[in-house]
């Protein structure tokens, strides 16, 4: 009986945490500021969705969602790589010149 209660509580906790993470990530996707920030945030969102689908499978014994997870993780990766390539059109441009070293000496 208490075990069932524990399961219910933990299930809601997991769901709530993942929903909160997804909402925060959506905020970052919305405010940017650059395309690459949004790409990183989208990657994290894909991972959160993978986590959520996995948790859903585990909590409701819906094991048919597992192949979905594989395709999702792979497709998310391809998307972010494509956007990164698109942003870095000048891909053979040299790295920016080193700016003067401003590291503090250890005190």
């Amino acid at each position: 009986m208490t075990l069932d209660l524990l399961e219910v509580v933990l299930t809601w906790l997991v769901g709530g945490l993942l929903a909160a993470s997804a909402a925060l990530t959506l905020v970052r996707i919305t405010i940017g500021p650059s395309v690459l920030d949004r790409v990183i945030a989208t990657d994290v969102l894909v991972s959160i969705v993978v986590c959520a689908l996995g948790a859903y499978a585990a909590l409701t014994d819906a094991w048919t969602t597992l192949p979905l997870l594989i395709s999702l993780s792979l497709v998310g990766f391809l998307g972010s790589v494509a956007v990164a390539r698109f942003v870095a059109r000048d891909r053979d441009a040299p790295a920016p010149d080193p700016v003067p070293d401003r590291l503090e000496e250890e005190s």
């Binding site: 933990l10 906790l13 997991v14 993942l18 990530t25 991972s47 959160i48 986590c51 948790a55 909590l59």
Partner: peptide, 20 residues
């Protein structure tokens, strides 16, 4: 298994907070 799910979800939240 549920505890692991919870830990994973906590780290997801930390990642999202860090992102923000």
């Amino acid at each position: 298994g549920l505890v692991f799910l919870l830990l994973g979800a906590l780290l997801c939240l930390a990642a999202a907070i860090g992102l923000l």
